[in-house]
Amino acid sequence: MAEESEDRKPLLSKKIDKFFTGLADAWNFVRRFFQEVFMPPYEFKEIIQQCYRIGVESLPLISLTGFIVGIVFTNQSRPSLSEFGAASWLPSLISIAVVRAMGPLVTALIAAGKVGSSIGAEIGSMKVTEQIDAMEVSATNPFKFLVVSRVLATTLMIPLLVMYTDFVALMGSFLSVNANEMVSMTTFFVQVFEAITFLDIISSVFKSVLFGFTIGIVGCYKGYNSSKGTEGVGRAANAAVVMAMFLIFIEELLVLQLVNAIRGM
């Protein structure tokens, strides 16, 4: 009954009222997700389809980006380390940077652009063409079918994509290190795994889960609440990307503070 909100009279100024009602709507949307995610029936087929779309279909873009990031970051770091005669630390430096920050961040930003916008546009167009209403009036649960399945799929697939990006970026880095410093693959990866800790891996997975959830829920929320025809669909897709990217950076900062605090204990 989204239309009920149209009847609300502004309590303060229109803008402040809109901000707080928007916040309350978003909170209710997230709360509804957690209420419905554990309740049967489960839309397994749709979840698997979405996992395929979000995971497998993102692989080419993620592969290319991860590989380039690995090479570029290695090449950019080399001169600085060489100045101190520490070029041999390149594998350690790259592994820490990729696993702790760049892998999750690059993957999440690409997914926010590719997956977030597609979820926002798809659900938005279903909303404005009354397809969601059609599901509702046929006594089915569109929230479970559209929102729960997509949010679960992004939450599951983004961590896997992050691991894949880490691997591809490290391979790119290895090619650069191998070509310039003549380091073997075994030596490179021994240094890589010596540099990263269990906490690095756990925090990376935790962040990826958080990023995946954010991309899915923001895309679905913006699409589910879109209005005003095709213009609204475009806005929903755009807002899904901008809002997801903004939240990803904030989450990155918060998780970094948390991990640093744990590391200092």
């Binding site: 167009s125 279903m126 009354e130 397809q131 209403d133 059609a134």
Partner: peptide, 10 residues
Amino acid sequence: FSFQNSALYD
């Protein structure tokens, strides 16, 4: 409920 634009799931 038959919708104005059919509302088929595209």
